[in-house]
Design a protein around this nucleic acid. Structure first.
Lengths: 205, 205
DNA sequence: TAGATTGTTAATCGATTAACAATC
DNA sequence: TAGATTGTTAATCGATTAACAATC
């Protein structure tokens, strides 16, 4: 079939482009160019054109890109032209904050359930959700056919939570616990650890 | 002087190494090798050795690395063998969660103040902090000689908050708002936007 | 000593940039 | 038409990997 694989680093930039395009739409803009987008993001115009060319031809010579159209196309490539249901595990400060995060709206995601193992928290309300017993994780996640989850439990528990999520059919995990987790081939993991980002900057201070 | 510059991508991996080393220490381990560390992180042993060799010789042939010593050295390189005071701007769900985050302990950072512009929030308690008026931002940040801040305000306000932080002397910003911000040369910015990470994974689902 | 593992060099691989014909 | 900007190729640049002498 000879299907060329898209480099991971290119896929990783698409969400950045999409976010900028949506910001431009909010500003009422209609058209942009690789140069403008690049200046806005600190990325070279050539790189943006090269990245996009991996997926098709979305622009017009002399004119640039229709923001609306390009956003639509990138959304389709990333499969976020739909809404993905997401489960949150851990109802502490971080889990509660992300469960209620307004920023998922219109960007392809919706939190639909939250779990905790603490009996004190189970049954409590977090925004519009009732915290579920973590014992129900497998059955509820599986039944709802949820493929994406966010882990917001202490580091020591993150691996076992990940194992349970995978067993329940989850294929993409966003891990807020400050620890590397191992998952089977084919399951995707991304990490959010503020300390990693901060330490990366202190080097230069 | 001919000082070789360390590639940014190498600096970016050091915090990952450090986190893994500290986890090993917690497990009571004393010695590790580039191979073991690499397997744990999904990074090649050669790359780890190459990265570390940019800064010095930290291992022993035949033996590997003293975990304690290597963690110490990387901490020193990253300048996190001290505690940096951090300001948080925005006392919503996210700002409150990061202000109280336990994970900064022993990793080089300590939140010392939190601001909000909402008069309803100003004066309220967030953990052990009293929310400060954002009007006091410049004076309080400057007086405390704070160099690092985290932004957790709505996207529309992030740029103006960043401008004020920079004016107050902040040189490193961790931005939780889902928007690119521009800062003067020499000021560092890192981003945390869960949607970016999620969209990066949906491509593969 | 024999085995293991580092630090480093050279080779390979991959990503970015520059340049420009095509064309709106 | 003249000017602008794309999509793409080739050149450059940089990062990763393989291999191995040094040595604990």
């Amino acid at each position: 079939m000879d299907v060329k694989t898209i480099p991971d680093i290119v896929v990783g930039r698409l969400p950045i482009y999409l976010r900028a395009l949506q910001a431009m739409l909010d500003e009422g803009r209609k058209v942009t160019s690789s140069q403008e987008l690049g200046e806005r993001l600190g990325i070279s115009a050539a790189q943006i054109r090269k990245d996009l060319s991996q997926f098709g031809e979305f622009g017009k010579q002399g004119t640039g890109y229709s923001i609306d159209f390009l956003a639509e196309q990138i959304g389709a490539i990333l499969k976020v032209n739909r809404v993905w249901d997401v489960a949150v595990v851990g109802a502490g400060d971080i889990g509660s904050a992300i469960a209620q995060y307004q920023g998922f709206t219109n960007r392809g995601f919706r939190v639909v359930m939250i779990f905790d193992k603490d009996p004190e928290k189970v049954g409590a309300q977090v925004g519009s959700f009732t915290v579920q017993r973590v014992e129900e994780l497998e059955s509820l996640v599986q039944e709802a056919r949820i493929e994406i989850a966010m882990i917001a439990v202490p580091g020591a528990e993150a691996q076992s939570v990940a194992d349970r999520l995978v067993k329940a059919g989850v294929q993409a995990i966003l891990n807020y616990a400050p620890i590397s987790i191992s998952v089977p081939e084919g399951v995707h993991v991304q990490y959010i650890d503020p300390v990693i980002h901060l330490q990366r900057m202190t080097y230069y201070l």
